[in-house]
């Protein structure tokens, strides 16, 4: 088989994932796109491993590691998304702009106050 086929497929899949990461609004869809990017890399690694006939099977080993890493990332990523959702009722990435350092004065105070109220509410709940 021509090595070009898996290599080009991997490259295209990577870029499709890349597009998804940049264009999707829901953060879970962004996570999915990241998975696509990682899978593209896996395809690359497997194809190269087979082509190279690597005695150490470095490519396949790294593929396994990547799959595991991806699974771990999905796990922790989802819990972060859920946390964000719980705190603000949305999982849209482009609405997460509280941390921006506003150039104009005043708005940052608002976010600061918002934060303090959250803390206070937290404290009351704890009391």
């Amino acid at each position: 088989m021509h090595l070009v086929y898996p290599a080009v497929l991997a490259a295209l899949l990577f870029c499709v994932g890349l597009y998804g990461v940049l264009a999707r609004r829901n953060s879970i869809l962004v996570l999915m796109s990241v998975e696509l990017m990682l899978n593209a890399v896996n395809l690359n690694l497997v194809a190269f491993d087979v082509w190279l006939r690597d005695a150490l099977h470095g490519g396949q080993a790294l593929t396994l590691f990547t799959i595991t890493i991806a699974a771990a990332e999905i796990g922790i990523g989802l819990s972060i998304v859920l946390l964000v959702f719980r705190n603000r009722g949305t999982a849209d990435v482009d609405r997460l702009t509280d941390l921006v350092d506003s150039l104009a004065h005043g708005t940052d105070n608002a976010s600061d106050d918002g934060r303090d109220t959250v803390r206070n509410a937290d404290g009351k709940a704890a009391a």
């Binding site: 080009v8 490259a11 890349l18 597009y19 940049l22 999707r24 609004r25 990435v93």
Partner: peptide, 21 residues
Amino acid sequence: ADSGNRWAALAVAVAAAATLV
């Protein structure tokens, strides 16, 4: 479902695809 970043995303993705392929 898509954010306002779509066109920038498309540009970057196409550039990346062109390079990689």
